[in-house]
């Protein structure tokens, strides 16, 4: 996968409003079953309910690591799609607060880039299931965005 083809993939995904080819590039995103939904100029990411993602068998609830991995990947895709970065950003750190149990149902995430410098980007991610104003988790992460 050359950088050019990644840029082309992003452009084509926007054009055709089909983000599956972009998701399919990353095996881990396919494993979780991540999807992108374009809403005007905004992007909402979806993690469909999946038995394989359960961590707490009692509730049952999604594994906290799955919620975190979904949010981390949403942030990376968001940077790729909107911030004109021609290669996969590299993670520096990731911090998550779990606010409510992630039940066995679809989960959504939306990202906010608070700052993109030449070398580093700061992204905040919110994940919810019922309504966006009742998040199940919030996270923030730094990515290295300059040449790999």
């Amino acid at each position: 996968m050359s950088e050019l083809s990644l840029e082309q993939l992003v452009a084509r995904a926007h054009q055709q409003n089909d983000y599956d080819p972009l998701i399919s590039l990353i095996p881990y995103a396919k494993l979780l079953g991540i999807e992108c939904l374009r809403l005007g100029d905004d992007m909402v990411f979806r993690l469909p309910a999946n038995h394989d993602c359960i961590g707490n068998p009692v509730l049952p609830a999604l594994h906290g690591g799955v919620i975190a991995g979904f949010m981390e990947h949403a942030a990376m895709l968001h940077l790729l799609m909107f911030m004109g970065i021609p290669h996969l950003p590299k993670i520096i750190d990731f911090s998550i607060d779990y606010l409510r149990a992630g039940h066995y149902r679809d989960t959504y995430a939306q990202c906010q880039v608070w700052r993109q410098g030449r070398r580093v980007a700061n992204v905040a991610i919110t994940a919810w299931q019922t309504r966006q104003t009742e998040p199940i988790a919030t996270a923030r992460t730094h990515f290295k965005v300059d040449e790999p």
């Binding site: 095996p27 690591g65 991995g69 979904f70 990947h73």
Partner: peptide
């Protein structure tokens, strides 16, 4: 993927 490392560490 970092997410798999997060799952391992969580």
């Amino acid at each position: 993927h970092g997410g798999a490392i997060t799952t391992l560490m969580d």
